[in-house]
Design a protein around this nucleic acid. Structure first.
Length: 1193
RNA sequence: AGUCCCAUAGCUCAGUUGGUUAGAGCGCUACACUGAUAAUGUAGAGGUCCGCAGUUCAAAUCUGCGUGGGACUACCA
């Protein structure tokens, strides 16, 4: 027999357990084994989204990484080989900004005060600064990922693979250089990424001068000359021809014929863009009004067009009319009499000058007359006079100044007609391009097309009196800004020219450059783009094959994103990043995209031959040699490659395009770049499909980040998905639901948390408290609760097992007791256990860790500990080492072992401790680690739902009896004689009988009487079953229910006898059968009764003399046990007792002497008349005596 | 502004294909238990299922419109 014992502990210290287990893992290389020991032909591919080591990890990283870890561990248990390569995201703006700050330089200084090489080296150092901290977090939280051989995005091999991917895109014609509107900071002289714009505090509310400008329609031509070619006959005379006009155009035509002016109204918050206006956009289905009214500044009669919905924003209407009810012909005050004119009003500094009260009311004009109504479509292609004719577009000027459709036009604000300046708005540029309207570009000194505002943010010379002025006062140096901004000056000019309908201040949010604090401009800039729109449909189709958790992120957020896809702006005008591998001639008509170092070396050779370069910096690079040393001989960063000049096929020099690529492309390239594909590992990618992840997980904020770039690159280059399953987790908020931030001081330090509570409790809490995709309100007290409730209970259960197993020298050496030979309760917990395996397996399989965790903890707390162990305690410490006892040990052992395995993905440390504590003694399973074991397989044949049902009955009955006892203040130790339960059907009776013993011992009652329904004493109630009746009788359901509820006891008996009844409801015959109602017992007259959910229990509470004595004896046993314990005796020690006699207990002791002695291992019990040395014990209220206890030899 | 998520007891969360008395844990109060004891049991208090409208015989559940919180994207007159 083995002498080894199960480990016993004095207390549970989860952080210490984690430390010990971690040491074991490292000593035994458990992680490595968990990979190598699994079948390499059964890979489960996981991609690690690379964090940036530039910043410190937060508690949310623990969350995100726990999720990744859980499924990788689970799949490992299921026998898959799960390689997990760590990675580092090393490029990008945050790194650069940090370095600039540290070095005290700005972007402009790079290349001047410091060489790009020095700068890049500083970035390289900075970015890996916190790798140790990250590695520690990874270790401590038990995230298994291979940190020894991570992919690093700044390494030459990685960059080479990225270049190869770019080369593929270039080859497929998916890369182009384009001119687009981008956020631009004139003061900093640089474009800004959306990332930069989303820095906190960038969007600020500012008050700008806004202007509703009047764009005057050109005269509508009704007559059109038809040329000869179009005539069928041979007449030579051109014939005047009446062009068909739609009704609104007719109306405008009529007005114009009368010498009246007609204007479009369009609003802008940036009047400085008005000189660059080239079009007006309308919503094709929006309703517009043509209104005769008056200009409040010039006092002139005018006719204007604006959206119907916005009419009431500018015009006063009577209280009893709603704006949507306005129709043509409605009018307010007539416009009779002399036009109101007041030149002073125009020149007044005050921009908002009200008309006299009779003309304007609360800023709304009260003189108006609705002349016509139309929809936007009717207005399209109408032409208007250029508002501020300083310059003309250098090309297609004849196509400008027209009304075009814009699907983004709304009637939320403004006028429902949008001023379009294609050079200063992304939407503007798009609709203008779609409609063939040119942007306001003029040719500069070098005949390059440029907008009317230069890169410093000043108006160009073409702008007359505005030339040289900054478009925003903020761009002037301190103290140099003029009193009136150009926005104000332009507004005044428009007022003077009867071109401003309304000018006012307006507060809105506008982005500012986070570095200079100045407002940004939207400005056309040159960039390299990836034509993602070309593969949009394919990306949408492939996305439908991806399993998103939660699904809504995939269909909703991601799906919509794909539907509205724009081309991917790849360019970044920075230094520390992957250079765009494109070399171009000056004119741009010849270019090459380099896809490998080998190719670059060869191209340089050509260039040397052509005389553009003198030596080859890649001369030492050995082609085909994949050693790190070979790849360390050069550097593919900007500082290195910008010196390389290549030669074009026609013999011209080609220089590298100066931009870097978006860092998101770096990380999106990782599936292949981490393996240096296609230069190495070709088979892994092409044959084993390791380029497609079975599973990835990141925060939901990565939807348009990493999730997108992975998907886009995989679709474009390989035409397959990059991942099959993806979990996007929510945020970790503080306990009040606020976002965690260092600024608010509510950020939780992950290391402190892990140290204090241990990784297991932290992970368990995070996973079970909220679904991964819901935001988690992180509360440290929640971890304490998990510690106590789940781990504490599990630990106690193991402790209980170990204590008695060691006493009995149980080591699981005996053969399995056949399940059929085990008692009901064992079979029950085994059934529950197998149901649990099934549920947990399914939950993990469907990426639902929360379900898995909650199921496990319910099993451990409610079933295993609070029921199985509690009810079985006696079996463990009472009697011989019988088969029943062995069955109990085996059952409990199995439960603990399986729980350890099921819980191990979530709580890897404690589970391992528990599992190895068990396995090391029994030799069962893998004795090194739970993580090297195999996921338990469910044994369907032992799942017994009837048994689980019966146990539910037992639990419910017990609970009800205990409740009754409580009401009557009868202690559980006081035995009672009888329990009565009405039986309504045979199944219930059988089920109850099979668990009767359990109930009786649990509630300390001697017998159960089954009340068959013959006596007629039971009071019953009947309830309609809505689920069956509802579909059948629908409308009269309520009345049926009312009638059934009215059934008398007689009606119910009648129903039972006939197994049904027919009632009449609202003249309709309603057939009820036994499925249509539920009949339950409600009361047993004359008894102490409890009813709950159809189950009724009656308790006989008469206490006979024998019962009373037995109760006293039990009290004694309890007191003696306490004394034994207080005296420090071993559980196995025998004792001798002396009890001071007392009239009320003597008989009770004598009549139950045998019972007392066996229960307490008492070899000798004397009731004595006198006792000096004993301890006073209270048996009942006002009933005490003395007991003396000593060890018996 | 658009898209998405969330809203149920003081707190954290469950709530099956819609079915009539909406649950659990924690916390609180009281009692009990005491050979798992830094545990455990029982009972009690605690709810406008965010609001409004609709579909339905029947809505916490489905639909629409709002409100509040959060995220992402955009910045557009």
């Amino acid at each position: 027999m083995s002498m080894s014992k199960f480990n016993e502990y004095k207390g549970l210290n989860l952080p210490n357990v984690a430390k010990q287990v971690l040491e074991q893992w490292e000593a035994n290389k458990v992680f490595e084994q968990s990979v190598t020991s699994r079948d390499e032909n059964k890979p489960f591919v996981f991609f690690e989204g690379p964090p940036s080591a530039n910043g410190l990890p937060g508690i949310h990283h623990v969350m995100a990484r726990a999720i990744k870890d859980i499924f990788c561990r689970y799949k490992t248990l299921k026998g898959y080989q799960v390689k997990r390569k760590a990675g580092w995201d090393t490029h990008g703006l945050p790194v650069e900004l940090g370095v600039e700050k540290e070095l005290g330089i700005t972007k402009e200084d790079i290349g001047k005060k410091i060489t790009i090489e020095e700068y890049n080296n500083a970035c390289k150092e900075a970015v890996m600064r916190y790798t140790d901290v990250w590695n520690n977090l990874t270790r401590q939280m038990g995230y298994w990922v291979d940190m020894n051989d991570p992919y690093i995005t700044y390494e030459n091999k990685y960059i080479e693979s990225v270049w190869w991917l770019l080369g593929q895109l270039h080859q497929k014609g998916l890369m182009y250089k384009g001119y687009t509107i981008q956020p631009y900071s004139p003061k900093a002289g640089t474009g800004l990424s959306s990332h930069e714009l989303n820095q906190p505090g960038c969007y600020r509310d500012v008050k700008d001068t806004t202007c509703v400008a009047q764009f005057k329609l050109k005269g509508i031509e009704k007559e059109e000359v038809i040329t000869i070619d179009e005539l069928h006959d041979d007449e030579n005379e051109p014939v005047p021809h009446l062009k068909p006009l739609n009704p609104i155009q007719e109306e405008i035509y009529r007005l114009q014929q009368n010498g009246e002016e007609v204007f479009f109204l369009a609003w802008t918050t940036t009047p400085w863009t008005l000189p660059s206006n080239t079009a007006l956009a309308v919503g094709s289905k929006i309703s517009y009004f043509l209104v005769k009214t008056i200009n409040q500044y010039s006092g002139k009669h005018i006719n204007i067009i604006l959206a119907k919905d916005l009419f009431s924003k500018y015009f006063e209407i009577s209280d009893n009319i709603k704006s949507k009810d306005l129709i043509v012909g409605n009018h307010m005050l007539t416009l009779a009499g002399t036009p109101y004119e007041n030149p002073e009003n125009i020149l007044n500094d005050d921009l908002l000058r009200d008309l006299p009260k009779e003309l304007i009311n609360k800023g709304r004009i009260s003189h108006w007359d609705i002349l016509a109504e139309c929809i936007g479509n009717d207005l399209i292609s109408l032409e208007y006079e250029q508002l501020l004719p300083y310059a003309q577009p250098y090309e297609n000027a004849d196509k400008a100044f027209r009304v075009i459709p814009g699907d983004f036009v709304t009637t939320e604000d403004g006028t429902g007609i949008v001023h379009i300046a294609p050079t200063f708005g992304a939407d503007d540029a798009k609709v203008a391009k779609d409609a063939g309207v040119p942007p306001m570009l003029v040719l500069d000194e070098n005949f390059n097309p440029v907008p009317l505002v230069d890169l410093q943010g000043k108006f160009r010379p073409e702008m007359g009196e505005f030339a040289g002025k900054y478009v925003k006062n903020e761009y002037y140096k301190d103290g140099e800004a003029p009193e009136k901004s150009v926005d104000v000056e332009i507004s005044i000019k428009l007022k003077e020219e009867n071109k401003a309908f309304k000018v006012e201040k307006y507060e809105h949010s506008y982005p500012h450059c986070w570095r200079t604090d100045k407002p940004i401009l939207y400005y056309p800039l040159d960039s390299w783009f990836i034509k993602t729109t070309a593969v949009k449909e394919r990306m949408i189709a492939l996305n439908k094959t991806i399993n998103w958790k939660p699904e809504s992120t995939g269909t909703g957020r991601f799906g919509n994103w794909l539907e509205n896809l724009n081309d991917w702006n790849l360019s970044r005008s920075r230094y520390w990043g992957i250079p765009i591998p494109i070399w171009r001639t000056e004119t741009g008509d010849e270019e090459i995209c380099i896809s490998s170092v080998e190719q670059l070396k060869a191209e340089i050779e050509k260039s040397i031959a052509a005389g553009f370069m003198t030596n080859n910096p890649l001369a030492d690079f050995e082609i085909g040699n994949m050693d790190k040393t070979n790849y360390d001989k050069f550097d593919l960063h900007k500082n290195y490659v910008d010196n390389i000049v290549l030669v074009s096929p026609s013999g011209k020099p080609m220089k590298r395009e100066t931009d870097l690529i978006d860092v998101w492309f770096d990380s999106g390239s990782m599936p292949t770049a981490q393996l240096h594909y296609p230069f190495e590992n070709k088979d892994l990618i092409e044959k084993q499909q390791l380029g497609v992840a079975d599973f990835i997980a990141e925060g939901v904020d990565q939807t348009r980040g990493w999730f997108f770039t992975l998907h886009a690159i995989a679709t474009m280059v390989f035409d397959h998905v990059a991942y099959k399953n993806v979990v996007s987790n929510g945020l970790v908020l503080d306990k009040n639901g606020q976002k965690m931030s260092k600024r608010l001081g509510n950020a939780v330090d992950p290391f402190e948390t892990l140290d204090k509570y241990g990784p297991d409790a932290t992970r368990w809490y995070m996973i079970t408290n909220a679904q991964p995709w819901d935001n988690l309100k992180f509360d440290l007290e929640g971890i304490t609760e998990v510690q106590r409730k789940f781990f504490g209970t599990l630990y106690n259960t193991y402790g209980f097992f170990a204590l008695y197993a060691n006493l009995d020298n149980f080591t699981y050496a005996e053969a399995e007791v056949p399940i059929a030979n085990r008692p009901e309760i064992d079979r029950w917990i085994i059934s529950k256990l197998n149901s649990l395996i099934k549920d947990v397996d399914a939950a993990y399989h469907t990426y639902e860790p929360t379900r898995a965790g909650r199921a496990i903890q319910e099993f451990v707390n409610d079933h295993l500990s609070n029921w199985y162990v509690r009810l079985c305690r006696r079996r463990f410490w009472k009697g011989d080492y019988s088969e029943d006892k062995i069955a109990a040990y085996q059952t409990l052992y199995t439960c603990l072992e399986v729980v350890a395995q099921l819980a191990s993905p979530i709580a890897p440390f404690y589970s391992d401790k528990l599992y190895t504590d068990l396995a090391s003694i029994s030799g069962k399973g893998n004795t090194t680690s739970v993580h090297l074991s195999d996921f338990p397989t469910v044994n369907e044949s032992v799942i017994d739902t009837d048994l689980e049902q019966r146990m539910d009955i037992a639990q419910q009955v017990s609970s009800m009896v205990l409740s009754l006892r409580k009401k009557e203040q009868i202690k559980v130790r006081q035995p009672l004689q009888k329990l009565m339960i009405p039986i309504l059907n045979a199944t219930f009776k059988r089920q109850l009988q099979e668990v009767a013993d359990l109930i009786l011992s649990e509630v300390n009652v001697k017998e159960i009487e089954y009340l068959e329904d013959t006596s007629g004493v039971l009071v019953k109630s009947i309830k309609p079953n809505f689920k069956t009746l509802g579909p059948k009788y629908g409308k009269i359901m309520k009345q049926i229910a009312a009638q059934v509820n009215q059934f008398t006891q007689n009606d119910i008996q009648e129903f039972e006898r006939n197994q049904g009844a027919t009632i009449t409801v609202e003249g309709q015959q309603v057939e009820l059968d036994s499925n249509d109602v539920e009949i339950i017992t409600q009361d047993i007259p004359g008894w102490l009764v409890q009813t709950e959910g159809g189950l009724t229990v009656a308790l006989d509470i008469t206490i006979s003399k024998e019962l009373k004595e037995e109760g006293i004896a039990r009290e004694f046993v309890n007191r003696i046990q306490n004394l034994r314990k207080d005296s420090g005796f071993e559980v196995t020690d025998k004792i001798a007792l002396k009890i001071l006699q007392h009239n009320e207990i003597n008989e009770a002791i004598n009549n139950n002497k045998n019972y007392i002695c066996t229960e307490t291992l008492t070899s000798r019990l004397d009731v004595v008349n006198e006792l000096n040395e004993g301890v006073s014990v209270e048996i009942d209220q006002n009933l005490s005596t003395l007991i003396a206890i000593e060890k018996f030899n």
